[in-house]
């Protein structure tokens, strides 16, 4: 897949998001801000699942750590939020290194379960250490006056998220990204070719954790509060669902999934009495009819349309073939 084809929708999206405050009201800008942060969280997760084939059920730990880094620095040491946001990926990254050291030794379901356990451990500490974290009612944090207006914080978020997604884009196209893809497709063969599988997986885990930390650090000033629920296991399920809904194989898949979930949550809880019913119905439709996710399905449809006149190996088929082969060592 050419890099232009992957970069073009990103640039269109960036332009749209940059123009948004001129087109819609304050409340929608706030919602868009929520979306940007959620999108970065889901994108950082997909570096693990989509790129490296690691299904983590504990990704919210790093998201929450980012949020609490900003809130703790602010309320305990009086550090303003911008240095806090710079510190967040370091804290989340260091924690990801410590946890990753253990979890990358495991595979598949065991990896998922251990990452979940570590995340719940951190959640327990945060939610019950009342004197330090404020416990389950959260820890307040206030943006400075210049970031308080909705539009100002929106552009700030847009800049940070764009840089981070740009970084993920470069990683995906780098040799490091290619090595992760090789490990995803066939870890044995990758190891046989001389790749140190554990080190690559650990590096991906740390990078994903640090970027989730950035997303979290943008979240707590937006809500003016860090909450333990940001670290709870249900929060870890969100990026899994968003990524699957949007499309795990496509770079912008998690962005589309995040947009869907943020909008759906907001609309459904504003206007219906049965939000869980609505969510269930949407997930059911996605799983039954769009198993490759929204972006995956659209891409497939696009490729088939283009492939019709000249049925020479479409890229999607080649990709599928590679996957087929990969699953049988």
């Amino acid at each position: 897949m050419g890099w232009r084809r992957e970069a073009a929708p990103l640039l269109v999206l960036l332009a749209t998001m940059a123009a948004l405050p001129f087109l819609v009201g304050e409340s929608d800008v706030y919602l868009a801000n929520d979306f940007l942060i959620t999108a970065l969280f889901a994108m950082s997760f997909n570096l693990l699942l989509g790129q490296a084939g690691m299904l983590s059920f504990g990704h919210a730990a790093f998201y929450g750590l980012g949020a609490y880094t900003v809130a703790l620095l602010y309320s305990k040491l009086g550090v303003p939020i911008v240095p806090g946001i710079l510190a967040a990926p370091l804290v989340a990254g260091v924690m990801a290194l410590a946890i990753g050291f253990f979890v990358v030794r495991l595979e598949g379901m065991y990896f998922a379960m251990l990452s979940l356990s570590f995340a719940q451990l951190i959640f327990s500490v945060v939610s019950s250490w009342y004197s330090f974290t404020g416990g389950d009612n959260g820890l307040p944090v206030s943006p400075p006056d210049w970031l308080l207006p909705t539009n100002a914080y929106y552009y700030f978020t847009l800049a940070v998220v764009s840089v981070c997604i740009g970084l993920l884009f470069l990683v995906r196209r780098s040799t490091f990204g290619a090595a992760l893809a090789a490990i995803r497709e066939n870890p044995q063969r990758a190891a046989y070719l001389g790749l140190n599988v554990r080190v690559y997986q650990l590096a991906a885990f740390v990078l994903a954790g640090a970027l989730a930390g950035v997303a979290g650090s943008l979240r707590s000033p937006l809500q003016q509060m860090a909450f333990p629920s940001l670290l709870y296991w249900t929060q870890s399920a969100d990026p899994v669902l968003m990524t699957l809904a949007g499309g795990v194989g496509a770079f912008i898949g998690p962005i589309v999934g995040a947009a869907l979930f943020v909008l759906l949550t907001f609309v459904v809880t504003s206007h219906t009495d049965y939000p869980l019913f609505a969510f269930g119905a949407v997930v059911l439709v996605l799983v039954l009819f769009l198993p490759k996710g929204i972006v995956g399905t659209v891409e497939g449809w696009w490729d088939r349309r283009r492939a019709k006149p000249a049925p020479a190996t479409p890229p999607q088929a080649a990709h599928a073939a590679a996957q087929q082969e990969g699953s049988r060592p």
Binding site: S27, Y30, G138, R219, Q223, S229, L230, T265, T269, S270
Partner: peptide, 11 residues
């Protein structure tokens, strides 16, 4: 969910 509390109240 506190984050939904914030979003809806702002809205």
């Amino acid at each position: 969910r506190p984050e939904l509390g914030t979003s809806h109240t702002r809205d």
